[in-house]
Design a protein around this nucleic acid. Structure first.
Lengths: 231, 231
DNA sequence: CGGGAGCTTGAGGAGGATCAAATCATGTGG
DNA sequence: CCACATGATTTGATCCTCCTCAAGCTCCCG
């Protein structure tokens, strides 16, 4: 039984000054000459769904900026089950704890095809005064994401939770979105795989979402919002 | 119908250098002469259960270090219901978003008799280079608390959730702990008030906890741990 | 073609929600 | 000091959602 490991593909070294999403990321406030200080390699990685960025307990040496795709942060329960405690999307930072703790505290795993850039924590430490404001913003984002997951995705009926998740999977202006596996869906919403499957099927039947390709959905925002708030 | 507001009592100005829990708080890293920079008043407040520190949308002008007691952070759902997204205890900081956002994002309300010290955000801004490390730690704590609430208190049966909450209400070495109202219990665990009440009564009948005074409990850690992890 | 993993669907039962009422604690005004 | 109103807590009865266990299904890969 060979271990079919899902791994990240190395894309190359990065020139942060030409980053397409500079205003979203940690280095947003840096000026031209600040980049001279970075003498450690910052790498660009591509990850397929299922590929882990890091595992809990692993020595925390890098932080990761999500450029594209979606990640889950999962932790384990006293009874051995796992629970997804947060989602990270474009502009979010995974592994921020590297700056204050010796090891990672979650498993961070891609849920959708993803691009990240991998920054050694020493680079962050060296630039830390210049990054102060952005670091605080990223921590703030992490807290907000987490509260969002509790508030929207762990409250109310299974139907409401799934509907709210569809609402969060892409900006409201975009009707199309990509979903992920039913098992992860369950671990994120605090329901079983079967209930997750049934509920998605139910929303499809009701027309709130339409599956136009495997796990690619067209959303009806009005219908979803109604379901998300129904008594 | 007069509005019976529950309010904070002013305790006096604080000398941070003599703080009893200095190693726990934001100012842990400051040296003697750093305190000279603080020219804005830092106040000590006492709050009874039910007293709010701040409300969502209110202009965020201060951050609060919890010296004693317990606070809830609550937010509102699309359907109008409220949900407690995090708990804060000794050493935690409430209202950290003041440093990066214009307004508060939660209601922060005392669940138990509490003491806090109130720090103007300008003081934090002025000291920010010196506080960098501790600020990052406090953000980290905020994220961990939030993930803890999702993982331990929003997963599994009502019985497991209540048992896990009892486990979190005080350090394992202390058997005694104080609980709060059933409505808040429900909003924290994502269950109804009635189920919260029934479940607490059930744990009492089973001997996992004993109520020795109104809402003061003696815990049986072994029994609680068993329940927390039961299939 | 066969095997396996993930997804779907079904039947049955348990746990929690809902609605309703009784109890208890608190504070208010007479 | 007592009668009463108010709100929180407890308890009960019923219904419905979701979990559990089990079986088929689809798709991909060897």
């Amino acid at each position: 039984m060979r271990d079919h490991e899902i791994e990240a593909a190395w894309q190359g070294l990065v020139s942060c000054e030409q980053c397409q999403i500079r205003d979203l990321v940690l280095f947003a406030d840096l000026a031209g000459d600040d980049f001279g200080v970075i003498h450690l390699p910052i790498e660009d990685l591509w990850l397929p769904p299922g590929a882990p960025l890091y595992q809990p307990g692993q020595v925390a040496s890098h932080i990761y900026t999500v450029r594209e795709g979606l990640f889950k942060l999962e932790q384990y329960l006293p009874d051995g089950n796992r629970r997804i405690v947060s989602l990270l999307g474009q502009g979010d930072v995974a592994g921020l704890e590297a700056t204050v703790a010796p090891v990672y505290e979650h498993a961070a795993v891609a849920l959708q095809p993803a691009k990240v850039c991998r920054i050694p924590k020493d680079v962050v430490a060296r630039l830390s005064p210049k990054l102060h404001r952005q670091l605080m913003k990223k921590w703030h984002d992490a807290v907000q994401r987490s509260h969002e997951c509790t508030r929207e995705l762990s409250t109310g009926s299974a139907r409401q939770r799934v509907a709210r998740l569809f609402g969060l999977l892409a900006p409201a202006s975009v009707r199309r979105c990509r979903l992920f596996g039913r098992e992860d869906l369950g671990a994120l919403l605090g329901i079983t795989t079967e209930t997750a499957s049934r509920t998605v099927a139910d929303l499809k039947r009701g027309g709130a979402v339409t599956e136009i390709a495997p796990n690619i959905f067209e959303r009806d925002p009005a219908a979803l919002e109604l379901i998300a708030a129904e008594g």
